[in-house]
Structure formats: structure tokens, C-alpha cells
Amino acid sequence: MSDRADYKQGGGAFSSDILQRKDFWSAILYVGLGLGTIIASLRYEFGSPSNMGPGFFPIILSTILVLIGCVIAVRVFARNTVGPDVRLGFINWKALALVAVSTVLFGLLLPYAGVLIALPVLMLVGAAASRHFRLELRAIIGMLLLSTSTVLVFVIGLGVPMPLLGSAFGG
């Protein structure tokens, strides 16, 4: 964030600390999700207790969720002392991104390129999430072995309808 310096001048150490707290972010998450669900549920008929409409249960639940989020938020501001256990700590952005992206890539590539290409891509991009990742002979052999056995078991053995080569190759 570019305005972080201003933040510190305005609110002291407290306001920048708060962005590091787990409970602060859970409060945001719950209030946000709760409000979002309430708004989305307004489109559905609420009904009455004797004849609950599709909006009844979700609105009650998301109201509780918003309340929980508010209580957590109040407690965040009431307790300034930040113990080490409420701090977010190290967030493994790289692993998170690579694991998510590799899965999405697999889904995108599967119909067009086919499983023979999508699988190695999934493994390579996913494996790069580890600190120990190195593109060496052993890793490539392992990848090929895993790809072949997966294709044999799932596509040929269990008959999961995945194209070996996708539409891009006329498959």
C-alpha cells in the first residue's frame, strides 16, 4: 500500500498493527459475506415462519453472521495488546497462487489441449510452489511416470471422459 506512511502518522502504531491481526480480517470477512448474502437474498421471497420462503433461512443466518463479525470487530478494538498468536504471520502467496493457478490451468487446457498436456502443466506449475522445486532429471521422470499412470488408471481404466488430445489437435 502506498499510503502506509500516512497511516502511521494518523493513527499511530495501532492502526498498522490492526492489518496484521487475524481476528480483524475474520471480522471483515464475516461482515462482508453476511451483508453480501443479505443483499443477494432480498431478491428471494421471505415468506413467514409458517411458510418459509427461499429467502427466510439465508437472511436469518447471514444476520447472525454479521452480528458475529461485529462482536469480533468490537473485541479487536477493545484489546490493543497484540499477542503473537493473533498475528497473521507469513503468508505463502507464492504457493497459494501457484497451486490455484495450476488447477485453473488444468481446467482451461483440458478441453482444448487434452489431458496429455494439461496434466504435466498442472504438475509443473503446482510443483513450483515448493521451495525444493528443481527441474532435474528425477523430477521429470517422476512427472512422466505419474502422468502415464494417472492416464492409464483414470482415463483408460475408470473411463473418465477426458480427451487425450484436445480440440486444438482435432481430438
Binding site: F106, L122, S130
Partner: peptide, 22 residues
């Protein structure tokens, strides 16, 4: 680090096979 790519593969294929949908 040898193990988790395999878990990733099983999850992805398992998810696809539920409804054969990406």
C-alpha cells in the same frame, strides 16, 4: 515435495470426474 503434486493431480481429476465438467 515429491508427494504434493500427486495430491494435486488426484484432486483435479477427481473434481472433473464428478460431473465431467471443468
Amino acid at each position: 515435495h515429491f508427494l504434493f503434486p500427486a495430491i494435486l493431480v488426484f484432486c483435479a481429476i477427481g473434481a472433473f470426474s464428478l460431473n465431467n465438467s471443468t
